[in-house]
């Protein structure tokens, strides 16, 4: 039970008047006002254990209501608030102020490679189109559906467990240098979602999906820079999944 570590955590948390001053340096863009994007600084009093999202809300609710960003669940499940924080793709709701050196200005800008529409909001449509293009749904050829559930061993279920965690936040795809330079590339998220079905023992359309990803804009564009794996807020081994798809294309084993 209660260890000294925990007592410390609780004592720190109880001292809730422990606020620090931080600077949020936010990339602003509103085409209704100006064609150019600019950096704007905001000084905030904030508890360092709060999230970057809490800081953005403080700005929006108390200082400048025009600051625009997407968010919903606020705990890393819905995938709305992927943004570049101090140059790295993260979810604003899963990044605590204390973990990103609040001594220096915290830079917040939109994810890259997708058209910026306003402030931190980007056009997600190309991202979701790539997802839809890999046929992200179970395909079976059986003519008679089983009455009960299909059987699947725990091992077969485990085979694609990692890639079922994807929340389609686009942190991986928009951290990929290949995607930045070539918007036609499917990008890591679409490949992760193809992987989720290719390696599902119940699915019977792996060949079709592999052919889609064998395209010139498919998996072969990946240069294994691991940016995607570093960016994934769900801890998915994205690069590994892409490599497994490449291997399956060569060996036709999955």
């Amino acid at each position: 039970m209660a260890t000294p570590v925990l007592d410390k955590v609780e004592a720190e948390a109880a001292a809730s008047d422990h606020l620090i001053t931080v600077t949020f340096r936010v990339r602003r863009f509103n085409p209704e006002v100006s064609a150019d994007a600019v950096w704007e600084d905001f000084q905030l009093e904030i508890d360092p254990k709060e999230r970057v999202l809490d800081g953005l809300h403080k700005i929006k609710w108390d200082v400048d209501g025009t600051l625009t960003f997407r968010r919903s669940c606020a705990h890393g499940i819905c995938g709305s608030d992927a943004m570049r924080i101090n140059g790295k793709n993260r979810l604003a709701c899963k990044t605590l102020i204390k973990d990103i050196n609040p001594e220096k200005p915290i830079t917040v800008e939109p994810i890259k490679g997708l058209t910026v529409l306003k402030d931190l909001v980007v056009d997600m449509e190309p991202f979701f189109q790539a997802y839809r293009d890999v046929m992200p749904f179970l395909i079976t050829k059986e003519t008679n559906e089983p009455t009960r559930e299909r059987l699947q061993s725990a091992e077969d279920r485990e085979r694609f467990d990692d890639t079922t965690k994807c929340i389609l936040c686009a942190a991986c795809t928009s951290s990929c240098p290949v995607f930045w330079n070539d918007g036609q590339y499917f990008g890591p998220a679409a490949i992760v979602n193809a992987h989720r079905f290719i390696f599902d023992s119940r699915d019977e359309a792996a060949e079709q999906r592999l052919e889609i990803l064998n395209d010139r804009d498919g998996v072969w564009r990946c240069r294994t820079t691991f940016n995607c794996t570093d960016a994934c807020p769900r801890g998915i081994e994205v690069t590994k999944a892409i490599q497994e798809v490449k291997r399956a294309l060569i060996t036709r084993r999955f």
């Binding site: 009960r148 059987l151 725990a154 694609f160 467990d161």
Partner: peptide, 20 residues
């Protein structure tokens, strides 16, 4: 309702027998 979701592809955890 559960069986429909399984047929749609939902990856439920499995028993040693392979059932949900």
């Amino acid at each position: 309702a559960v069986l429909d979701l399984e047929k749609m592809g939902l990856p439920f955890n499995r028993t040693p027998n392979g059932t949900i």
